[in-house]
């Protein structure tokens, strides 16, 4: 559906490019996760896709049509939901929806129908007459999302849509977003919350310092060869064992280990029992997204 091919972008007066040779393939009908630490280039990529910036190098195409042409033909094809509450605090929920539907140029009947659909989708029926500034964080997020759905976009760009909401609202938002592909809207989802991405995304790209570090289906990315494992103990790993299994210290008595064969796993457990070490956790064969993310982006602080 959306293809990003060798795109680079550098802001005026910036020393380093914000994006370098980025290529992604976002298929229709799914939730695509875009991960990266602060400053990785996620917002720049989203701005390019939303038409706010124009790529200097590379190509972006929507349904095999260059992005600018596709946007000119159908300005409502791609919708952006910014990270901030991008609506008018002094207007009511209904007035905000009516304004953005009008700004999209929707005709009267279509406007009415889509506003009703957006209200129903985000379950805003009880607060349509309330001013946006009086809404809770969760309701504001829902309004922000509802506005993004006006115009029935083919691709919805969500920038950190669950920041600052309570667990109930987060769960509601995630379920709602996960259900969007079924109604014909593909979602590009950026977030810092790994468990959210793991829960609703089928494909993921990890971005850092303007480059794509890894891209693929979630299952492919999280699967690892049998040869590596992560273990958490109640004390330090004995030196002899650390040397034999090429251990890396991950902090808090957590260690990354390397096995030549799976048979060695049983042997390690025996050796640890003899050394008086208690095993708290052991992961073999599949890592979680956070482990993958931290390994790829390295653990250093970014800002």
């Amino acid at each position: 559906m959306l293809k990003v091919d060798g795109v680079s972008y550098r802001y005026r007066d910036a020393a380093a490019p914000a994006l370098q040779d980025v290529s992604l393939n976002i298929p229709a009908g799914g939730v695509y996760g875009l991960l990266g630490p602060n400053g990785a280039g996620k917002t720049t990529l989203i701005s390019l896709l939303a038409g706010l910036l124009t790529a200097a190098d590379g190509k972006i195409s929507l349904n095999d049509q260059p992005l600018t042409e596709a946007r000119a033909a159908n300005p409502r094809a791609i919708s952006l939901v910014p990270q901030d509450y991008a609506f008018y605090p002094m207007l009511t929920v209904a007035e905000n929806l009516a304004f953005f539907a009008g700004a999209l140029g929707l005709a009267r009947d279509e406007r009415r129908q889509q506003i009703d659909a957006a209200i129903a989708f985000a379950r805003l029926e009880q607060v349509t007459g309330k001013r946006a500034e009086q809404l809770s964080g969760g309701l504001r997020r829902r309004l922000n999302l509802a506005i993004g759905l006006l115009g029935q976009p083919q691709l919805l760009l969500l920038d950190e849509p669950t920041v600052g909401v309570d667990p109930q609202s987060r769960s509601f938002l995630l379920e709602s977003i996960a259900a969007l592909p079924a109604s014909g809207t593909t979602v590009l989802y950026t977030s810092h919350y790994m468990e959210e991405v793991e829960a609703i995304c089928q494909r993921v790209a990890i971005l850092d310092q303007g480059r794509v570090l890894s891209e693929g289906t979630l299952d492919d990315l999280l699967a690892t060869a049998d040869s590596s494992a992560e273990i958490e103990l109640d004390q330090a790993l004995p030196a002899a064992l650390a040397e034999r299994y090429a251990a890396t210290d991950l902090g808090h008595f957590k260690f990354g280990l390397f096995f030549r064969s799976t048979v060695e796993v049983a042997r390690l457990l025996d050796e640890l029992a003899v050394a008086g070490c208690t095993v708290r956790q052991l992961h073999v064969g599949r890592q979680n997204l956070e482990q993958l993310f931290m390994r790829l982006t390295r653990r250093s602080l970014r800002d």
Partner: peptide, 8 residues
Amino acid sequence: QRLAAMGL
């Protein structure tokens, strides 16, 4: 930004 993304 949102309005610009809407093509306004």
